[in-house]
Design a protein around this nucleic acid. Structure first.
Length: 470
RNA sequence: GGCGCCGUAGCCAAGUGGUAAGGCAGAGGUCUGCAAAACCUCCAUCCCCGGUUCAAAUCCGGGCGGCGCCUCCA
């Protein structure tokens, strides 16, 4: 498995430190709103990374994805609605889990919340260590990390120490910092805000400390194998995580840093003012399936910007159909021996697919391999070169592709929970078949149109009529 | 001011030195009661200009055009 490491700006061979278990952390959501499709591009990419590590590279994975459930926005949101912070954030945590399930994401091994007592304790302990080692100072009730104490600060983002602030905007109300680059580890709380004291005094967590503390608490000794997140987190979030963790432990924090590019919507940055911040329910209300979004977001490489459009969704939908139509065709193959050419083509496609995935998660190329195989096997089937005895290897290969891509299995779940029952469909089809036998094509077409209204498409073929869901 | 990215067919998108994967859309054909599905054929010389090389979409330089980060935004 080769992965692009932001730390070195190169693709590197990746193997977990112990050769078997990948210990991976990713920055999750700040739960002040429902996740949008941009967030989910990150989490879908993360899911594919996880699946590739497991099903292509054969590693085990322990994945931790956190919830930031205390910060300015969550506190403000809870206050605005007059509910306790925990109740406010619980809603969005529940929505996140719902959305992840709808997208077919494999669950993380751990989803820690910053406010869990064990995590607060871990943060406090880490801050105490940093204080002991002289990396901090206190000011107005807050504890800051002193960047001047870390000579190679800025390695990840490739920041130039001298030029770091020239021309950049600086947050003017952070007047109590000694150096504008310093960042807060533990924030003094205002009256009425939630507060904790686990040893370093009353306050609440700074953003960056959460991830450092939770990652090391749940994944064990530094360095962890992979730390991932959205590309916007490189600076300052991940840079600061590195500073804290490395100064506290004296060891590198993460061996490989993986960053996912952003999603644009109609070529623009998502923003509330443009009204283009879409959530999963928005996608569904536009008549699209969530599985289609998953496919679309995997059709481009994770490190390139992807422009979301509704036209793109329609194209993605058609592409998936080509895949699922082929699988449905396998059901109609009833007789025939195995063909060496089929096994050979399938084997080559599997190798190529795995190769693409192992090459820094090249999902676009991997999908290309899937469709090339679809065409080859359709051609073979048309020529009578695909027998029932071939079907098992073919199915196994496509199941493997979907172990990683995760779209077809998701569709099946969607189909199973939607629309007419299969028995109902069979009844309609029987009636239509009768009409066709009478050569009453008007009646037959009427039934077909009716089913289409109900979301079921019929296709007549030599082996009889096939149905599929719209 | 600093750091960095991108520009491949109507649309989406692989490709990182050897004469352009794949998907969608489109055209023609085969099949079919019709439709759909499927198959076949067709549809690009890679933003521009130089350079390196036997050979460049791929490397270097210069343009032009998009864009990101340097603000607790995935």
């Amino acid at each position: 498995m080769r992965l692009y490491n932001t730390l070195t700006r190169q693709r590197e061979d990746f193997v977990p430190a112990d050769g078997r278990l990948v210990r991976m952390y990713a920055c999750g959501l700040t739960v002040y709103a429902r996740g949008h499709i941009g967030n989910f591009r990150t989490f879908i990419s993360l899911d594919v990374l996880r699946r590739a590590l497991k099903y292509v590279a054969g590693f085990d994975v322990k994945q931790v994805v956190n919830f930031t459930d205390v910060d300015d926005k969550t506190i403000a949101g809870a206050e605005r609605e007059g509910v306790p912070l925990g109740e406010y954030t619980a809603r969005y945590i529940a929505a996140f889990h719902e959305d992840c399930s709808a997208l077919g994401l494999e669950p993380s091994e751990e989803n820690p919340r910053a406010t869990d007592p064990a995590n607060i304790q871990a943060m406090s302990d880490m801050i105490a260590t940093l204080e002991r080692k002289g990396h901090t100072y206190r000011s107005d009730g807050s504890i800051y990390f002193k960047i001047a104490t870390m000579p190679d600060y800025g390695r990840l983002a490739r920041l130039d120490h001298e030029g770091i602030l020239a021309g950049a905007r600086v947050d003017s109300d952070e007047y109590d910092k000694e150096d504008a680059r310093d960042f807060v580890l533990w924030k003094a709380t205002k009256p009425g805000e939630p507060t904790w004291d686990a040893g370093v005094g009353p306050g609440r967590p700074g953003w960056h400390i959460e991830c450092s503390a939770m990652a090391l608490r749940l994944l064990g000794e530094a360095p962890i194998d992979i730390h991932a997140g959205g590309i916007d987190l490189i600076f300052p979030h991940h840079e600061n995580e590195i500073a804290q963790s490395e100064c506290a432990t004296g060891k590198p924090f993460a061996r490989t840093w993986v960053h996912f590019e952003h999603l644009l919507v109609e070529n623009q940055k998502m923003s509330k003012s443009l009204g283009n911040v879409y959530t999963l329910p928005d996608v569904v209300s536009r008549g699209f399936r969530v599985s289609t979004l998953r496919y679309l977001l995997l059709s481009a490489h994770y490190r390139s910007r992807l422009n979301f459009t509704w036209a793109g969704m329609a194209q993605a939908e058609e592409a998936i159909r080509r895949w699922t139509d082929f699988l449905a065709r396998l059901d109609t193959i009833t007789g025939g021996e195995a063909h060496a050419a089929v096994a050979e083509a399938v084997g080559a496609a599997r190798t190529a697919f795995d190769g693409a995935m192992a090459d820094d998660l090249n999902t676009a190329a991997a999908l290309g391999e899937v469709f090339e195989l679809v065409r080859a096997l359709n051609t073979a089937a048309d020529a009578g070169g695909l027998g029932a005895a071939d079907v098992a290897v073919v199915r196994a290969a496509f199941a493997h592709f979907d172990d990683v891509i995760g779209v077809v299995s998701l569709r099946r779940r969607e189909d199973a929970s939607a629309g007419l029952s299969e028995a109902d469909i069979e009844r309609y089809m029987h009636d239509r078949q009768e009409a066709r036998r009478r050569r009453d094509f008007a009646a037959a077409d009427r039934i077909r149109a009716e089913l289409l209204e109900l979301g079921v498409i019929l296709e007549d073929g030599p082996q009889g009529t096939r149905w599929k869901r719209k």
